[in-house]
Simulated scan of single mutants.
Amino acid sequence: MRQRTVFFILFYLTPFVLLAQIPYSQQKDASDVLRELFHIKKPRKSDSSSLKEGGRVIAILPTPGYAPQSGLFAQVVSNVTIRNTNANVSILNLVATFTEFRQSIFQYTTSYFTKDNRFYFSNDWRWMDYPQATYGLGMNTTRQNKTEMNFRYLRLYQTLMRSIGKNRYIGIGYQYDYHWHIESYAQGTRVEEISGYKMGVNGKSVSSGPTIAFLYDSRTNAMSATQGLYTNVVFRQNLKSLGSNTNYQSLLVDARKYFDLAGNTNHILALWSYNMFTHGNVPYLDMPSTGWDTNVNMGRGFIQGRFRGKNLMYLEAEYRFTLTRSHFIGGVLFSNIQTVSEITDNRFRKAIPAIGTGLRIRINKFSKANLAIDFAVGRDGSRNIYFNFGEVF
C-alpha cells in the first residue's frame, strides 16, 4: 500500500511542477552544495565554464552503495567528459569497485567522437573476480533454486567507426570474453551442468571474434540525453581459429529514443529496447542475461543474472523530471519487461515486468552527470535498490 501511495504522488503531482530552464550560474551540483555547507568561497567562473566546444570536465567520485548481486560496495568513478569541435560529447570512465561479497571489478569504457564527428571509437575493458549466483536457463526459474558460480572474467571489446553521413557510422571491431576458474555449486555440491547445459559451467570458456557495427546517434550528450535517437547494431562472429570454444554468431540491437516533453529539458521521456540473439553453441556465461549489458543497468527490479538464455528481448520506459529549481535534485519513474528464450525449443514463452522510482543528484552541472539511486520491484517478488553514476540509459 505504501509503494502505491508513493507512485500515486510522484505520477500525478510531479508533471505539474514545471520548472523553467535556468543558466548554469543558477544551477547547483554536488560541489556547489558542499561549498555552501562548509562556507568555502566559490571560485570565479561563469556560464563559459559549461561544456562548450573544446571543453573538458573531470569528475572523481568515491561512491558507497548497494547492489543486489554484490551487497554493499565501495566504488571510485573517474569520469572525463570532452566535447571536441563540432562533435558530440565524448565520455571516458574508469571505475574500481570492491564489494561486500568479495567481488573486485576494474572497468574502463570509452565513447569518443573526434572533430566533426568524423570517427567514433568505443571500448569496454574490464577485469572481474566475481562470485555470483545463477538461476538457470529460461523464464521458468525461481529465485530459491540457484547455483553459486565462482569465476574470473576478462572482457576486451573495442570498435572503430567512420561517419557515413549525419549521425551515421559504420565500422569494425573485435570482442574477447575469457572466463576462467569457473566453479559451480548447488547446496554445497559441485555440479557439472545447469538446466542441462554443460559448456562453460566449470573450468574455462572463451568467446573471441570480429564484429561489424552500425551506429546512429543524434544525442548531444550520452551522459544525460534529453533528445535524439541512439541505435547500435553489432554482428559478431566467434571463431575457433581466434581461440573461441565454438564457432557461433550473435546479433545485438540496442535502441534508445528521448523526448523533451516540456521543451525545457526538465521533463524527459526515455525509451529503451535492448535485444541480443545468438546462433550456435554459446558458453553459459556468454549467453545474454539480465544486467549484463555494458553499463550493468538492464533489468532493474531483478538481480543481475536472474534470467539467462540464448536470446533476450528487453523494453523499458522512463520518465525523468526535475524536482528543484537549481536542478540539484531530480526524480524518475520507470517500468520494464524482459524475456529470454527457452533452452528446450529456443522460443520466447514468457515475459516478466518490473516497476520502480528513483532520485537523481546532480554531480556535475556542466556535464549533467547524476548519481542515480533507484528502487524497483519485479513481478517474481524481487525488490532491490540500485546505485549508478550517470543515467541508466
Rank of each mutant, 00 (worst) to 15 (best):
L156Y: 08
G200H: 02
L323T: 08
V6Q: 00
Y258H: 12
S382T: 15
Y216I: 13
F366S: 11
Q158A: 08
F11T: 05
M298A: 14
N346D: 15
T142Y: 03
P68V: 13
V77T: 13
S50E: 08
L154V: 12
N150Q: 13
V234K: 01
M276P: 01
L252Y: 08
N221E: 11
R360E: 07
T85V: 03
M161G: 02
L271D: 06
H181I: 05
L252H: 09
F11D: 01
P288Q: 05
P43D: 09
F334T: 08
Y258P: 05
G381W: 13
H279R: 11
K310P: 03
I22Q: 01
K28W: 00
I82N: 09
S31R: 05
L323N: 04
T220I: 05
G228L: 09
G165F: 01
I182E: 02
R383I: 06
M149E: 13
Q21M: 00
R360S: 09
V17E: 04
I361W: 14
G309F: 04
I212R: 01
Y284V: 05
H267T: 06
N123K: 07
P23I: 00
S50Y: 08
R4I: 08
A225G: 06
N79R: 14
T81A: 15
P43E: 02
Q175S: 03
D129I: 08
L333T: 05
G200N: 03
E318W: 04
S78N: 13
L285M: 12
G71H: 15
F113H: 14
E192D: 15
R360T: 07
P23N: 07
L323K: 06
F259N: 12
T109E: 10
G280R: 08
I329C: 06
S163G: 02
L18P: 00
S208R: 05
R308G: 10
T159L: 02
N297L: 12
Y153H: 10
D29S: 03
R306H: 13
S25R: 00
Y185D: 10
T246H: 10
A262Q: 05
